[in-house]
């Protein structure tokens, strides 16, 4: 259920679809089962969130997850099949990036697009390899946290003050309702 719940947050408006993702099993007709289908979806994932630094294998992983969701129920299946057909007919994977973007704009309101985009933005940026490429180190607790010289290793700016400014208390304390009520309101709305 973990995947289901996380998508719950992300997929604006499609909560119901996602909450029914539990029942993936026993699908009789599977869509996107042809050779090349996963590659086609992966090219869409890449056009949506293009990163030159990411190997295609990451987008292939993401595409696999999207296809799984496309098979989740009958409703998803029929819209996914139609969307995938569209990509194929238009040879989406052979278009240049500009044309791809234009094509994606034209299908932006379809459930197929919503499913693939909603899945991709979560699965892609949650991908362990993406974290590595981004230089995101994540958890450090097991190593005793980030050490002095790590969490504060930025050296292109001067060391800042960490204590409060000596005038702060006076600044915050000077807040009598009477005094502030005398300020005139200039309404801009």
């Amino acid at each position: 259920m973990k995947i289901t719940r996380r998508e719950l947050l992300i997929s604006a408006g499609s909560l119901l679809a996602y909450s029914q993702l539990g029942s993936l099993a026993n699908a009789e007709v599977n869509i996107a089962a042809q050779p090349g289908d996963q590659e086609m979806i992966a090219s869409m994932c890449k056009a949506l969130y293009p990163h030159d630094r990411f190997p295609m294998s990451i987008y292939m992983d993401v595409a696999a997850g999207a296809i799984k969701k496309g098979n989740a129920d009958t409703g998803a299946k029929i819209s996914f099949r139609a969307g995938l057909d569209g990509l194929k007919i238009n040879k989406f994977d052979k278009m240049n990036f500009k044309k791809q973007t234009k094509y994606l704009k034209s299908i932006e309101n379809t459930p197929f697009f919503g499913l693939v985009r909603g899945h991709t933005v979560v699965a892609l940026y949650d991908h362990k390899e993406v974290h590595k490429i981004f230089g995101y180190q994540g958890a450090s607790f097991d190593k005793g946290g980030y050490k002095d010289g790590e969490y504060n290793d930025l050296s292109w700016l001067p060391e800042p003050r960490i204590e409060e400014h000596p005038d702060l208390t006076a600044f915050l304390d000077d807040s009598s309702p009477k005094k502030y009520a005398s300020l005139k309101i200039k309404k801009t709305f």
């Binding site: 985009r117 933005v121 940026y125 981004f134």
Partner: peptide, 26 residues
């Protein structure tokens, strides 16, 4: 982290500008 940032940076958005921003994560 990148996982939350992807979800919250600009909900519903996609395309090069969004990806470029994410790409600057470090």
């Amino acid at each position: 982290g990148p996982s939350f940032l992807g979800a919250f940076l600009d909900p519903g958005k996609w395309g090069k500008k969004f990806a470029d921003m994410m790409d600057g994560y470090q």
